[in-house]
Design a protein around this nucleic acid. Structure first.
Lengths: 159, 159
DNA sequence: AGGATTTAGTTTGAGTTGAAACTAGTTCGT
DNA sequence: ACGAACTAGTTTCAACTCAAACTAAATCCT
């Protein structure tokens, strides 16, 4: 018969078991959503979203980097970055200068205000990842990175 | 004097090295973006986005599940699910019935058209994850799951 | 040199995301 | 029994995401 296990009453039914694949998918989707959540809260508390903060950190590390390179580094579509850069520029944290050698290209740089925000800080995604990685066996971290890289690669090659 | 390594000319400079923490962040952010990309392409080719498809799969597995439970299962905020459900309902793939025992609650179910889409299928995130997991050492998969779970938990407890 | 192709970046459009504010229904406390 | 507290779900809002279409600039090819 095996009709069972349907939560006909939302409450009181424990989380149903899913297969290992759905389990893993739930983890990686859920991870993305948690990053999103952390980002929203950072904006409320510090005025910068996650992607905005990441841009500040990376432009701080590589001044003069053009938007295309930065998008590649962040693994986002260039058009996504446009909006993030626009909002950071509106807040006077970042500047776009024209590349004298190639007028199509912009060169990104932090303003003084932007540089003031370019520092590690608690309650960020960076800090959380730092903590987890520091408290895990290096070999496990390596395995995780390998698996994640393969998923990234496999998904990426569906081009 | 170590001023070096600035890509003053976007082209021809290899990807700069980042620390292990930023490296890992790049992977998990990037994974989220790849899922997003796959989702967009699925919509173009099959008419369903990733979250929409996941809802179909899960409601198919657990008919009568209420939105709150489904949100919990998908690790998304309930308000996020509202829009996804609205769009699926507009497409006549899903129905919301009122729970006779608790009028606040809805009970979700697939229409005949929705049930027709509830099947595994290539070129989905599910298929890609399946492939990677099948081709990896089980112990590595376990390590990855453990690390990811800890990141999820650490980020989650920043409540 | 000059038109065709390629490349860098932005704009527009639809979907997803979480948080806060809101509505409506249920349960609790006295 | 009845008002207070709680719960389920939706709406509204700003930001992010990719893709496709577009602009402008550089390079390529005769």
């Amino acid at each position: 018969m095996s009709r069972a296990r349907v939560p006909e009453n939302g409450r009181s039914v424990p989380l149903p078991p899913l297969g290992p694949v759905l389990e893993f998918m739930r983890l990686i989707w859920g991870l993305g959503h948690l990053l999103e959540r952390t980002s929203k809260r950072m904006k409320a508390s510090k005025g910068l979203t996650g992607p905005q903060r990441l841009v500040i950190r990376l432009v701080g590390r590589f001044p003069g980097i053009p938007p295309g390179r930065l998008a590649e580094l962040m693994l986002v579509h260039p058009s996504t970055l446009s909006g993030v850069l626009r909002r950071l520029e509106r807040k006077k944290l970042l500047e776009r200068r024209r590349d004298p050698n190639d007028a199509r290209r912009s060169l990104l740089g932090l303003t003084a205000a932007g540089r003031a925000l370019d520092s590690p800080s608690p309650f960020t995604v960076e800090a959380a990842v730092e903590r987890v990685l520091a408290g895990s066996h290096p070999s496990h971290v390596e395995s995780a990175k390998a698996i994640l890289s393969r998923v990234v690669q496999t998904l990426g090659e569906v081009d």
